[in-house]
Amino acid sequence: MNTFIALSKKEMNQMTKEYKVVWLPIVYILLGLTQPIMMYFLPAILQSMGGIEGIIIDPTMAKPGGEEVLASTLNSQFDQLGIIILAIATMGIIQGEKANGMMAFILTRPVSITSYLNSKLLTHYILAVLCISLGYAMSLGYTSYLFTSVPIMRALIALAFYCIWLLFIITFVAMMSTFFNSTPFIALISIGVLFICRFCAGLHPFLDVINPASNSLYATTIIMTGDIEKWYSFNIIVTLLLVLFMMAIMHHFIAKKKF
C-alpha cells in the first residue's frame, strides 16, 4: 500500500512537472466550449462564408435544444478529437519507463506489479476524469446560456456513464503501451481500435452489450431523453470485466518480463 501511494505521488509530480495537469484540462475546456459556440453561430458562419447561393437558410429553423448540444459535445468532440488527444497524452504511460529502464529498476525494489500498474492507471484516470468533467461543465454552462438548460441530474448521470467508457480508454491505451515500444504505433493502434468501438456502438443490440463504447452512446441517450434502461448496467459490468481482464494481461506481460 505504501509503495502504491509513493508511486501515485510520483506519477502526480511527474504530470505536474510535464505540465500535463495544465494543458490537458485546457484542451478539454476548449473542446467543451467548441460545440455550443459553434452550433450557436452556425447560421452566421454559413452566411458569412458565402457560396450559399441557391441555399436557403430557413430563418424559422428551430434552435437545437440544450440536450442536443450537450449530447453532441460528447459524441462529436470528446469521442473524436478527445480520444485522439487522450491517446496521445497517455501513450507513454508505461512505454516511457519501459524504454529507459525505470520500470525494471523500480521493480527491483519490493514493489508489486499490481501497485505499479494501479498507481499508473488510477492517476491517469483521475486526471482524465477531471479534464472531461471540466470540459463537460464548460459545455453545460454555455449550452444553458446560449440554448436551453439541461436537467443537472441527467447531465451528471450521463457523465458517470461516460467515465466508464473513459476507464476503458485509459486501460486500453495503457495495455498497448505495455505491449509495444513505439509511441506513434501505440497512439495509432489505440485510436484505431477505440474509433472502431465507437462507430460500432448502436449498430446491433448484441454488439452493444459487449462494446464498451456503448456507455458513451448511453450517455448521449440519457442526456436526450433521461431514460435509463435496465440493460445499461449489464454493459457496465461487461466493461468493468474487460478492464479487469486487460489489467490481468498487463500484469502477466510484465511478470513474464516480455518487455
Partner: peptide, 19 residues
C-alpha cells in the same frame, strides 16, 4: 537512469519509500 525532474534527495526518498 533516474527521473530527470527529481532532485538527488527526492530520488533517494522515492527509492527508499519503495523499499
Amino acid at each position: 537512469n533516474f527521473f530527470s525532474w527529481m532532485t538527488a534527495s527526492e530520488t533517494l526518498a522515492f527509492m527508499g519509500t519503495l523499499s
